[in-house]
Design a binder for these strands. Sequence first.
DNA 1: AGCGGAAGGA
DNA 2: TCCTTCCGCT
Length: 527
Amino acid sequence: MKTGCSIVEKPKGGGGYQFPDWAYKAESSPGSRQIQLWHFILELLQKEEFRHVIAWQQGEYGEFVIKDPDEVARLWGRRKCKPQMNYDKLSRALRYYYNKRILHKTKGKRFTYKFNFNKLVMPNYPFINIRSNGAVPQSAPPVPTASSHFHFPPIDSPNDDAQGSRFPGNSTVQSSHESLSDVSERKPNPSEQDDFSTDWRRSADLLTSRNPMGLGHAGLQKQDIMLPVFPVPGMYSDSHSPFALSPLHGRGGILNVPISPALSLTPTVFSYSPSPGLSPAFQSGSCFNFNPEEMKHYLQAQACNVLNYHLSPRTLPRYPGFMMPPPHRPFHPEEQHSFPIKLQPPPMGRKNKERCQSQEEPPVATQQPPVLPVMKVEPISDEEPISDEDLGSSDHEDKDYLSEEEKEPSPMKEQIKMEHTFIKPATPSRTLFPSVPTRASSSNMVIAEHSESTDQVVKDTSTEVALVEKKEDSLPPKLRLKRLWNGDRQAESVEDRECRKVSCIVNGLRSPVIHTENKAVATAVDS
DNA sequence: AGCGGAAGGA
DNA sequence: TCCTTCCGCT
């Protein structure tokens, strides 16, 4: 890297963890020709030698702690040739990131911040499959949670080859997972209110407008993105690091996004051009991999649970690296396919609705070209996710745009959501989707259709989950009513049978924590 | 400790 | 545009 004042040097091929090339390039800093603070922070985070100064926070994806503020400031000052730099100043710079949503403060924890990776990556790429590649460094960044917000800063550099070369050979790089949910415990920060919706769009914009090269490269399309999503367990040493995966080395997922974090985070217009079919080059290429067939299977299985039992994604095990192996296809750890991610805003809450009405900003990419009949590819709307307040929840992080169900994001949950999104309920009556909104969305949408309010949704899902655990046969009155309403009683038996199968799997995977949770819910329900 | 306005530099 | 610097306030 440019040194000059910097002491932080680009890791040499032999040793430490490396950051994506773009992170070291001047071009990475839009606007300025210098490295940006957040790049620098990430840089430090990925280096073992600075672990005593700054490190990823355990337990929170994307969250990091500045263990030695003065030292970090000193390092930053050195890098920027600002000897007078101190933590107060550095923190001010960090605070500017709040509004940009690159970072947010972890309240209650000193010197602890959290990256808003989703801001750096692009969501709304339903078919994004991440292939795990690369070894993971210890300083690997947090793994994105199901919310899939965590997106690693896009990579971009005109000189870079398509996706693989962005990360140096032994890079330990990163990708980020989303879990980052960014929103952690943020309070309704005025600037963050539109955080997610905006973020999504911005991210998308980055892909589309900011990275002409990426788009134009080898026929890459916006979809040609790789998100590090469900890493295989043990893939990286630091599951909290968003950069646990390396694109290069075949394992680990990375966000192979043709955009660079360096690019301005200010989006332009997001024009989504769904392309169900990825360019051949890409598909064979390695990064992006989407198999409609597999997807179909997943969707069906998941949909079964979700639609019939109203299982909450939360009921799924939270296995950081777990992924249900695709049916009809052996599970190859080496080339793990991640599930497509469908990032969409949660159902609008009262607040959001109001805002929506008062807000003009028409969704840019609301049109969704007719694509796969079975899958819906829709742009993320501008609507914002329901806030904590709306949900009545308290301090949950990582919720990002996800609904209440995402408090405990997990790959599986994401998967479910995704499937939810794409699935076209075959068995269940279509009345479930009285009117599939053209721009709406997905899981949230589906859920929303079942209940009028968010609270209701939470209650329903939880309740149903609990009931399912207890006895799948005895459907809760509420559910029965719904079915009646849906007029799918006829399909009930069939559905149940199939769902039971899936349920078995799900139950088998269910984590203790979830179990407890469900039990609690069940108890509550019983009473 | 943390926040955010204001002014200014590159 | 991205900080850097300063500062009052919580």
